[in-house]
Simulated scan of single mutants.
Amino acid sequence: MEILFFIIGSLVFGIGVYLIFDHINYVRIAAETKGKVIGYKTSSGSKGGTIYKPVIQSYFGEFTGSYGSSNPSYQIGQEVDVIYIAGKTPRLKSNMPYFVGIFLMIFGGIFCLAFFSIFNFSLWNILYSLGILMLIAVSLRRVLKSKGIDSLDELKEVVKEANKKSEINAKNIIREPEKIQDVHRKNAKATKIVGPVFAIVGLGVLALGINLGIERYHFLQEAIPASGTVVDFHESSSDDGYTYYPIVEFSPNGSFEAITFRHDTGSNPPSYSRGEVVEVLHAPDNPNNAIIDSGIFNWAISIFVGLFGILFASAGIAVSVSTFRKQRNQINL
Rank of each mutant, 00 (worst) to 15 (best):
K171E: 12
G49Y: 09
K192S: 14
Y272M: 11
N253H: 09
I296C: 04
G213V: 09
N95G: 13
I200E: 08
G254E: 05
V183W: 03
Q78S: 08
I29V: 15
F99Y: 14
K164F: 06
D153E: 10
I174E: 02
G295L: 00
I210H: 06
F324Q: 11
S69G: 14
G209V: 01
L281S: 01
G14K: 04
V321G: 14
A86F: 14
S139F: 11
L220P: 08
A283M: 10
A318Y: 06
V100C: 06
D22S: 11
Q75K: 11
Q78V: 11
I51F: 05
V27D: 10
L92V: 00
A258G: 12
F233H: 09
L333E: 14
E32W: 13
P90Q: 05
S238D: 02
S237L: 10
G9E: 08
V100Q: 01
A137P: 03
K36G: 00
I76A: 03
L220K: 02
A162M: 08
E178I: 04
K189H: 06
E178R: 10
L140I: 07
N211Y: 15
A300Q: 14
P287S: 00
W124T: 13
Q327K: 14
S267Q: 04
G77D: 00
L11P: 06
L113C: 11
G213D: 02
G16K: 05
H184G: 01
A315W: 04
S314C: 09
F119K: 12
G101S: 01
K93G: 03
